[in-house]
């Protein structure tokens, strides 16, 4: 009621140029902005300070860069940093390539196309923890379905999750299985928007399918590819749930990534160190993903 009373005289007395502001009121930003500011920005800024402290949630002692030094000194903490980058590169690389191949397959005229599309995409929507548990069982070294199947054709399957050299890659494999459907639908949207004329014209000129793929599909699907690369790379850097469901970072620290280290340090009560981990992960994304995004988008403009 009061707002109405305040509004009316104002609206009649404002010059026309200002009326546009009234039509698209700036306070529309306020509800979203408040929630975002308090629950996202404040903690993010606070993390910059708390990462420099020894912290019990009730009081914090400033210790400078000690947490960060520890991060780069302790081999198992540093290993998680390397693992995170390896994981992100492998999973995003595989999703970029496999997603494109699947998208080409699923936009061509094949039997069961609709069903196949659904089947490839559905894992994206399934609980990550559920997927993780299922594959942990499937990847059991002696009783898992994968190794018993390999045994049936005479191959001695490895200890997917028990071999320290392999654990991270096995988790990456499952992440690819789970996430490639998303890359595929993004590519499919891109491929569908390529005019069919290009393919017809090139066919008349005698282009083979493989040439069409590399000379028409790949260049023209570029915007979709940029989206896939950036989404899956950032997703890979931030991944936590799958690692946690499958290996808890083990065996030892072999498959620890930044996000699982942050959780472990939090559980152990090293809040300052955990927050430092958060800041390191933030830096990692800022130093790798942001330049990557800028680079990929710039080349697009130049073309």
């Amino acid at each position: 009621m009061t707002t109405v009373a305040l509004d009316t005289p104002k609206a009649t007395s404002t010059p026309k140029a200002l009326r546009k502001d009234l039509r698209y009121p700036s306070w529309f930003y306020l509800p979203a902005g408040t929630i975002y500011f308090i629950l996202f920005l404040v903690p993010t800024v606070a993390s910059l300070y708390f990462s420099l402290t020894r912290w019990t949630l009730f009081n914090s002692t400033f210790i400078g860069l000690e947490n960060f030094q520890q991060f780069f000194r302790e081999p198992f903490l540093f290993q998680s940093l390397i693992n995170t980058v390896i994981f992100a590169v492998i999973t995003s690389g595989a999703k970029v390539v496999l997603g494109l191949l699947l998208a080409v397959l699923l936009t061509s005229n094949i039997a069961l196309r609709g069903f196949l599309r659904s089947v490839v995409f559905f894992p994206v929507l399934v609980s990550v923890i559920g997927v993780g548990i299922t594959f942990t069982v499937l990847m059991h070294p002696t009783q898992g379905l994968i190794n018993t199947s390999l045994e049936a054709i005479g191959i001695d399957g490895p200890g997917w999750l028990t071999d320290p050299r392999l654990a991270l890659f096995s988790v990456a494999l499952v992440d690819i299985w789970r996430g490639v459907g998303l890359a595929t639908v993004i590519y499919m949207a891109g491929i569908v928007s390529i005019p069919q004329d290009y393919y017809e014209a090139s066919r008349i000129d005698g282009a083979r399918p493989i040439q069409q793929f590399f000379l028409i599909t790949v260049p023209l699907v570029r915007p979709a590819m940029v989206t896939v690369i950036i989404l899956s790379f950032i997703g890979g850097l931030r991944l936590f749930d799958l690692v946690w469901a499958m290996t808890r970072g083990g065996p030892g620290f072999a498959s620890d990534v930044m996000a699982s280290v942050i959780y472990k340090q939090y559980q152990a009560g090293f809040y300052g160190l955990s927050t430092a981990g958060n800041v390191v992960l933030f830096m990692l994304i800022a130093c790798l993903a942001v330049p990557l995004a800028i680079f990929l988008n710039r080349r697009e403009v130049n073309q």
Binding site: L39, F40, V42, P43, T44, A46, S47, F50, W55, L57, I234, R238, A259, I262, Y263, Y266, Y271, S274, T275, N278, V279, L281, F282, I285, A286, A289, V290
Partner: peptide, 9 residues
């Protein structure tokens, strides 16, 4: 892009 800062939250 930014991962949420867990403990400060």
């Amino acid at each position: 892009m930014i991962p949420p800062a867990v403990v400060p939250t």
